[in-house]
């Protein structure tokens, strides 16, 4: 049961004919080979697959590709030149905000959104704001410190 769909991925128009059951995550990963988006649970809880749909974070594992006609999708790859994302990545490196790296792309995308909505968050706001992105390695301490540093660096820049 295939269906055609046109959408924009990382600023590039994409036309595809896909099975109606194909998730956005699988579409990005398998059809477009954009593998920064990771699948950690496939039922919308862990946050590893978080991407931007029309600029807003969303779980790509529970978004259906066919339902996204006309939408703009942005993955971590599409944010390579985004100035805020560069600052955030640097902060994650500086503050040891990642270990195995599997949750990292989703974590980075959620961080960018959090800092966009709350430019100078408290530690508590960071913890609540990232509660939808699970990390099994870091105990979150490095992540929280990275987000606070990124907030500072972004405010300074």
């Amino acid at each position: 049961m295939k269906q055609s769909v046109s959408l924009t991925v990382n600023d590039r128009p994409v036309e595809a004919t896909v099975e109606s059951r194909l998730s956005l995550a699988d579409f990005l990963r398998l059809e477009l080979r954009l593998t920064a988006t990771h699948l950690g649970c496939e039922h919308g809880v862990c946050g590893a697959c978080t991407v931007l749909i029309n600029g807003e974070p969303a779980r790509s594992c529970i978004a259906l590709t066919v339902s996204l006609g006309g939408d703009e999708i942005t993955t971590l790859e599409g944010l390579a030149d985004d100035p805020a994302m560069q600052v955030i990545k640097q902060a994650f490196h500086d503050k040891h905000g990642l270990q195995c790296g599997f949750c990292t792309p989703g974590m980075l995308i959620s961080t960018r959104d959090l800092l966009k909505r709350t430019p100078r968050p408290s530690e508590g706001a960071v913890r609540d704001g990232l509660s939808g992105n699970l990390c099994r390695c870091t105990g979150y301490q490095g992540i929280v410190r990275a987000v606070l540093k990124a907030a500072e660096d972004l405010a300074a820049s």
């Binding site: 109606s20 998730s23 039922h43 529970i62 978004a63 066919v66």
Partner: peptide
């Protein structure tokens, strides 16, 4: 019917909700 899909699509992924036709309201 598909609204936001935040509960329905997980159920579909888990094959816990036998749906033959999905009607998207968006």
């Amino acid at each position: 019917v598909l609204a936001g899909g935040q509960s329905l699509v997980p159920m579909l992924n888990l094959r816990l909700s036998p749906v033959d036709h999905l009607i998207d309201l968006r």
